[in-house]
Write a protein that binds this DNA or RNA. Structure first.
Lengths: 212, 212
DNA sequence: CCCATAATTGGGATGTCTCTCAATTTCTGC
DNA sequence: GCAGAAATTGAGAGACATCCCAATTATGGG
């Protein structure tokens, strides 16, 4: 288990540290039990904290679900943005984001499971993810790299493909090349030529990590 | 609410009829509350039956979930097979199945919601759905209609696209042409030419229904 | 080092859920 | 239309969840 929130809150006040512990614990419980089946008691216990302490920090389970999910999404987006600074071409960016997201979720399975689960529970999160993905896709259309009409449906289909890919990797049903294969499909769907899609989607990838 | 199971069990013994009533009720509750949040009490109440009666017919909630989900899948498959009898070309069949499934789930929203939810809860169901979809896809490869290598990942990606499409239609975020658009994407992913994919995926469609 | 404030604790009131079972009602074959 | 079998009923035991709150413990500025 990676205590991502706690390690980042190490230098903050006690309240913030406890809150972070609860959020890390929640990620683990959500991954193990699923968000719906998770109970406040379980989260508190996993965080080594009394039941009542939970309610000093969160109104109820929904609130911690939201906090955890949006924080995870923000972190992943920040990591991707940072790593993509130097990438100019929209097809490179789209492929990179797809592949790194899948690998990130796979390499931190608790985060992966919790995040995938959360996307289905929180419509607002799904919309945010779609909007994020869409930025680079629109960029590609503007630059003439993608030669198709892009609409919400296409972006949501991409999202569903990525979620399925993460799910399959977490279940052990697919292997390390899954990200590249999904990215290649996506580039083809965006009108990129077969040759270029293959070249871009299969570039060597340096793994990212969520903690520095 | 369509009492699909009950209407089919009309001429059977009392036990079978009560069982069918419970299954219809379960579909409604699963759709409204989600499978996980649904309680046995709620299902019994919706079926107009005492709590204890439930346990004469099902060991617990998991058992009715399985029964309902697999029965729904079997019904949909039977309906599709029946309607596709005359379709020979694999691209026509694939497109037809995708579109009809999406429309079927949309026109019977309770079934649609319950089924989509169930696919994520029951790995065995997802595998069964994938296997079903794969039959026509493999047929297309054999016949030379689809000019790509087909593997499990591609089939699962198709499944995820269809599930997302159903979800978006049920949420009212996409309209009646969703099925055709998804089918067109799928045919393109299978190597069908743009012109033919457009022609096949946008044929006029006669709506199917789950009850005769 | 002290004390006001903040944070934590854990027990308990209240509610819901699952599953059982003895009593009762409904079926069905003769 | 009756007797035995089958199905149904609903109250309740037991497990567990949420959320509150009075008592206790920790924190950190002066």
């Amino acid at each position: 288990m990676q205590a991502v929130f706690a390690s980042r809150a190490r230098d903050e006040g006690k309240s913030a540290r406890t809150r972070a512990r609860l959020m890390d614990a929640a990620v683990g419980v959500f991954a193990r039990e699923g968000i719906e089946a998770a109970s406040v008691n379980e989260i508190a216990q996993a965080a080594d904290v009394a039941n009542g302490t939970f309610y000093n920090h969160f109104k109820d389970k929904d609130e911690i679900v939201g906090s955890v999910a949006f924080a995870m999404a923000r972190d992943v987006a920040a990591r991707l943005d940072e790593a993509m600074q130097d990438l100019e071409d929209a097809d490179e960016r789209t492929s990179f984001a797809t592949r790194q997201f899948i690998e990130l979720a796979t390499s931190a399975p608790e985060w992966g499971r919790a995040l995938v689960d959360a996307v289905w529970h929180l419509p607002a999160l799904r919309r945010q993810v779609s909007a994020y993905a869409r930025a680079d896709i629109d960029r590609g259309v503007r630059d003439g790299v993608f030669k198709v009409e892009v609409d919400d449906l296409l972006v949501d289909l991409f999202a569903s493909m990525v979620l399925m890919a993460v799910f399959l990797r977490l279940e052990g049903e697919e292997g390390a090349d899954t990200g590249a294969r999904v990215a290649e499909h996506q580039l083809r769907m965006l009108g990129v030529s077969a040759a270029r899609a293959k070249r871009v989607a299969w570039r060597t990838l340096t793994p990212l990590s969520l903690v520095e």
